[in-house]
Write a protein that binds this DNA or RNA. Structure first.
Length: 857
RNA sequence: GCCCCCGUAGCCCAAUUGGCAGAGGCAGACGACUUAAAAUCGUCACAGUGAGGGUUCGACCCCCUCCGGGGGCACCA
């Protein structure tokens, strides 16, 4: 009782404790990573940085609780842990709030950051507060501009005119990744197509590496995220095939994954919105041109949602042009239809209706020929159809896709295909590619679903693109000494969405002198996608205030890549793909020595209320500030950790923060009830309690590293219960084992409930701070039980138990088991056929009827 | 349509990866303390693992089929 100051109440007063320790931590700065002479091994633990729209919410509370457990864990294990935080402070919410209130986005953003920072400190997140960054800070986005210019120099940033996704509400273009089910990811408005000249990053140059390097992350990233990334990149292997076009000099190339079916190509289709279609139709009759123009107009009225509806009727027009099949010299008609996409492959396909469902649907609609070239009923080694007793079954489906309407997509043997006849699908593909390559009419080819990353935005609140448009149309980088190219004040600017960049309305800002020849020129009025900011911010944390470089490569060598990244699965594709891409670009440029930015990834689930995501409109919003007010920070953090596996969603209706608070008070009371001095000899303590303590010391690290935080909390509860029992009805509060147990509880709790842990640690007679006190190793002699329970089974059923030494010999164990009365009774007059002994845990006696030599049939 | 994940007490979740189904918590019942209540402390009850089949001496765990829930991709040639 002597170890806590008398002037403090004996109540567990959450508000008082929180205030007290925030002041101490501010003073001691226990989580700073400034010391260059630090010889400890390093860990970089990073939480995805928040968007400063309002105060922290329950989702932040979960993410930052989990990230903080990991950061505190590695510190406790003796690592020098870098755990920084910053704000993703550019973007639409600030801009929209500014428009709504008629103010500049800056103060709104700054207020929110100040609020969130205060809340994070209260939440006891162990961030290094010396390394804060904001992406809307010119000191940060200056290096965004540097990155852009590096990309521009190396040809990875380029402008092109194309049909882009356009959100009519936000009045801005969207990256492919920001279009979900044909609607704007942000506001849900149906996205339309618009032809614009925009800036792109050439991520497709890295498609192979982005896909192949995912293998390195296997086991360290959630399998789900790896699958989503692989799906998104969508690599297809096949061949390009060149078709001659009558009346055209250049052949037309198509991409196909099924070059084996080239003999079955009966028509070609080009995307209506492609250059190719326009060119082909230009040489056709007036009637065809009119038909095509009408069709194209029709297609462009369709929204993405309508176009992606695969069940809708096929549409198209004949272009009255003809192509020559390079393998059999056949003339095939060329059609245009919107089921072919302009920006995939070559914007044109060879149609093989017998073996492709889309082509078959089209052929049936427009009465085009269907020719089967793969006998999908012919037997293939290891594939269907199944041969029964050496005979083919006689109920095989007919090879009549035109009649049945079902394309024959399966494997089989080639027919009607000249030199390919008799080959299996995979052999025919290989053979056809050889043929095409030797004739010079085709070649092996790969295509990706992934498109280049559209990075320009027609909005104000983002990084200005550092390019000057000369009067002759040439693109000139803003000279380095003129960076940062700062955003002007929003005052007097019309930020409201109108389809053109607000910056374009600032004539003074827009006008610039061409740095090459001194002539008048214009700035680029667009700003960058905020995903550019977050694609490299983890490197900026290494020297967040360095005015001379984006990051110090030597610091990157020390700390990067990020050892543990923590964030929501909502960023499984976009942010992670872009960060992986930019990391590879920086690697190629020689700035970093690694190719993947995040060595390990943990996705936390969502916090729900009554089964669905919280929202004001649903009326199921739980306010973090109110939860903290009611239960305390520690109880909320603990509840987040204890609710279940981190990647599972937490339904706040299913968890009990008040129970966490009760448990923490219970733990805290242990420290108060310890009556021995800090220097007692633990080895004289109660052995049973010590065993529980040391079992936890032995198991906790592995459980934390496996992210089984809920299990660790359960085990701490177990130790608290055992300690309570020892105090109240065991050896009592003076027993050294009770002190050892209470100290262990404090050490473990410091990961989850820092305030309670500090308070206990102080009450137990130690100076601050428990967060920097190292982990204690378990005593192996306390991990071996004096005796273990051995299960005795007869025919797999539990019949009795034995208390035996852990080191008992199998033969001895079997003898003891056979001698048990319950065993003898169960075996009866049956004969023991087999004995399985897994000393010291289990004996299983397998019996059979006397006289039988083998188990009955 | 294709691919992936998950189904364990009323509820949230464990189970050393094939060896006693229960660590922990919520909710519940009972008891102690109290004039009473709250808080606290203690005791107790509750499932045979979504269904069916298979492999095995032995299956929550591995295999197959089905049911239920969740997620990703999808006119990408």
């Amino acid at each position: 009782m002597a170890h806590h100051p008398a002037d403090e109440t004996s109540e567990y007063d959450v508000a008082r404790i929180q205030e007290k320790w925030q002041a101490i931590w501010d003073d001691l700065q226990p989580f700073s990573t400034r010391d260059d002479g630090d010889k400890r091994p390093r860990k970089y633990v990073l939480d995805m940085f928040p968007y400063p729209s309002g105060d922290l919410h329950m989702g932040h509370a979960e993410a930052y609780a989990l990230g903080d457990i990991i950061a505190r864990y590695w510190r406790q294990q003796g690592f020098n842990v870098l755990h920084p935080i910053g704000w993703d402070s550019f973007g639409l919410p600030a801009e929209n709030a500014a428009i709504k209130r008629g103010i500049d986005p800056r103060p709104w953003t700054e207020d929110n950051i100040a609020q969130q920072k205060k809340s994070m400190k209260q939440y006891a997140a162990s961030f290094d507060w010396d390394r804060v960054l904001h992406t809307s800070d010119p000191g940060f986005y200056r290096w965004n501009q540097w990155l852009f210019l590096k990309m521009f120099e190396s040809g990875l940033a380029y402008r092109k005119a194309s049909w882009v996704n356009w959100c009519p509400k936000d009045q801005t273009v969207l990256a492919n990744e920001q279009v979900v089910d044909g609607a704007c990811e942000r506001c849900g408005t149906t996205v339309v197509k618009k032809k614009l000249t925009q800036w792109y990053f050439k991520i497709t140059d890295y498609a192979d590496r982005l896909l192949d390097d995912l293998n390195q992350l296997e086991g360290f990233w959630p399998a789900k995220v790896l699958a989503m990334q692989r799906n998104w990149i969508g690599r297809s292997q096949g061949a390009d095939v060149d078709f001659l076009i009558e009346g055209r000099d250049e052949p037309l190339s198509v991409f196909t994954t099924r070059p084996d079916t080239l003999f079955g190509a009966t028509f070609m289709v080009v995307a209506p919105d492609s250059e190719l279609a326009a060119e082909l139709v230009a040489g056709a009759s007036t009637e065809v041109q009119e038909n095509f123009a009408a069709y194209l107009a029709d297609v462009q009225k369709n929204t993405e949602i309508e176009r992606q509806d695969a069940s809708r009727e096929k549409t198209g027009v004949f272009l009255d042009r003809w192509a020559i099949n390079p393998v059999n010299g056949e003339r095939v008609p060329i059609w245009s239809a919107d089921y072919v996409l302009a920006d995939y492959g070559h914007g044109a396909i060879m149609a093989v209706p017998a073996h492709d469902q889309r082509d078959l649907d089209f052929a049936r609609k427009f009465d085009l020929p269907v020719r089967v070239v793969v006998d999908t009923n012919a037997p293939i080694t290891g594939a269907i159809p199944i041969i029964v007793d050496g005979e083919l079954p006689d109920d095989l489906p007919p090879l009549d896709p035109a009649g049945t309407g079902v394309a024959l997509a399966g494997d089989g043997r080639m027919i009607n295909s000249g030199p390919l006849d008799g080959l299996s699908k995979s052999n025919a593909i290989a053979r056809m590619i050889e043929l095409l390559e030797s004739n010079g009419t085709g070649r092996r080819a790969t295509n990706f679903r992934l498109r280049d990353w559209l990075i320009s935005r027609q909005r104000f609140w983002g990084t200005p693109i550092p390019i000057i448009h000369a009067h002759d149309g040439s693109l000139i980088p803003v000279p380095d000494e003129q960076l940062p190219l700062e955003l002007p004040s929003a005052e007097g600017l019309d930020l409201s969405p109108k389809g053109t960049s607000p910056l374009g309305g600032d004539a003074e800002w827009m006008s610039v002198t061409n740095p090459v020849d001194g002539t008048p020129a214009q700035r680029d009025p667009d700003t960058m996608d905020t995903f550019v900011d977050s694609s490299w911010y983890f490197l900026r944390f290494l020297n967040p205030n360095d005015p001379t470089q984006a990051f110090d490569p030597r610091e990157a060598e020390k700390w990067a890549p990020v050892d543990q990244y923590i964030g929501g699965v909502t960023h499984a594709i976009l942010h992670l793909l872009y960060a992986r891409f930019i990391t590879k670009v920086l690697y190629d440029m020689g700035y970093v020595t690694f190719t993947e930015p995040f060595s390990a990834l943990l996705n936390q689930g969502m916090v729900l209320m009554d089964g669905s995501a919280m929202s004001k409109s649903k009326g199921n919003l739980v306010r973090l500030s109110e939860q903290i007010e009611e239960h305390g920070v520690d109880a909320i953090r603990l509840t987040m950790a204890f609710a279940g596996p981190p990647e599972d969603d937490i339904d706040w209706a299913d968890v009990a923060p008040h129970a966490s608070a009760k448990f923490l008070a219970r733990a805290w009371r242990l420290a108060r009830d310890v009556t021995s001095a800090p220097d007692v000899e633990w080895k004289n303590g109660d052995r049973d309690l010590r065993r529980v303590t040391h079992q936890l010391l032995a198991d906790a690290p592995g459980l934390i590293e496996a992210f089984k935080f809920n299990v660790v909390v359960a085990r701490i509860m177990e130790l608290v219960n055992a300690t309570r029992k020892a105090i109240d009805s065991g050896p009592g509060g003076a027993d050294p084992a009770v002190r050892e147990a209470a100290e262990t509880v404090a050490l473990c709790l410091s990961l989850f409930a820092p305030y309670t842990a500090e308070e206990m640690w102080e009450a137990l007679g130690y100076p601050p701070t428990v967060a920097l006190y190292g982990w204690r190793k378990a005593d192996p002699t306390l991990l071996v039980a004096d005796s273990v329970t051995c299960v005795v089974q007869v025919d797999g059923k539990l019949r009795d138990r034995l208390k035996v030494s852990p080191s008992i010999a199998p033969a001895e164990l079997e003898r003891l088991a056979r001698a048990l009365p319950a065993v003898a009774r169960t075996v009866g007059d049956r004969e023991i056929a087999n004995v399985i002994v897994r000393a010291p845990r289990l004996v299983n006696l397998v019996t059979r009827q006397r006289g039988e030599t083998s188990p009955s049939q």
